[in-house]
Each structure stands twice: as C-alpha cells, then as structure tokens.
C-alpha cells in the first residue's frame, strides 16, 4: 500500500476576520512537506483568500496572500475554485492571484495552478480524496 494519500483542504472563510485561512495554509504546507498529494479548494467566502491586491499594512497584521504563490514550489498545484462561489460574489478568475507551477513532466513548463470548477465537478473531485479537511 502506498504511503501517499490524497489530502484535500476546503477553504470557506474570508482571510482576516478569523484565523482559519492562515491555519489552513500552514497545515497545507506541513502536509506538502511530508510529500503527500495535497489539493486545495476555495468555496464560499474562501474565494476571498486568493483575491489579488491584498494590503494589510494599515492593520499591523501579516498579509499572507503572497504565501499562496509559494504553493507551486511545494508541489501543491491543484487549486480548485468553485465557479458558483465566484459568480455569487461578482468575481472572475482575473480577480484572483496568478498562481503558477512548473510541470516537471512537461519540461518544467509554467502552468496555472488554479482551476475554476462547477459544484458538480468539485463534488466528484472531493469524492476521489482519501482525507478531507474543512477550514
């Protein structure tokens, strides 16, 4: 039996009002460091976590949004965003961070990590996971 499991982290909270988004990101990076197959989903207010242009300088707390750009280096390159959640908030993929990874199976070509998927598609992706964490 393989030691690698498929982990999915579902993110449903906006970034700075509660600690969930930051905690999720930390756990994702830990899971990836243990060489597990890690994916993330952004649903409901979770889509606000990966909005472009975040600037917390006047709040005195860390803007952790640049950390999402490091995910590709940890082989976290399956980032699913639910279309219905974007639509409900008047957002499109252009409003989101431009997350990339280098595909080692394709001569390190730079590719998009974010995939916008429908509820139905996301339901099927969730079904394929071994472990699901909800944040």
């Amino acid at each position: 039996m393989s030691d690698t499991k498929k982990f999915m982290y579902i993110n449903r909270k906006a970034p700075y009002g509660t600690i969930y988004a930051w905690e999720s990101l930390e756990v994702v990076l830990i899971g990836a460091a243990f060489e597990q197959e890690v994916a993330m989903a952004f649903v409901d207010d979770g889509v606000y976590q990966i909005l472009k242009g975040q600037d917390t300088s006047e709040l005195g707390i860390k803007n952790f949004s640049p950390t999402y750009s490091a995910l590709g280096d940890y082989d976290v390159n399956k980032i699913y965003v639910e279309k219905e959640s974007l639509d409900a908030r008047g957002l499109t993929v252009d409003d989101l961070l431009d997350l990339k990874y280098e595909d080692e199976d394709d001569d390190w070509a730079e590719k998009d990590s974010i995939q916008v998927v429908t509820s139905q598609e996301l339901a099927e992706i969730l079904e394929q996971q071994d472990v699901v964490f909800s944040f």
């Binding site: 449903r12 649903v43 409901d44 639910e82 219905e84 509820s119 996301l122 339901a123 099927e124 969730l126 079904e127």
Partner: peptide
Amino acid sequence: RNSLQTCLRLAN
C-alpha cells in the same frame, strides 16, 4: 452559517 447549504451542494 451556510455550511449545510454548501455541503448539500458539494456532497456526491
């Protein structure tokens, strides 16, 4: 919260 509604939307 909307967790029930979202769960019902995403449950297979």
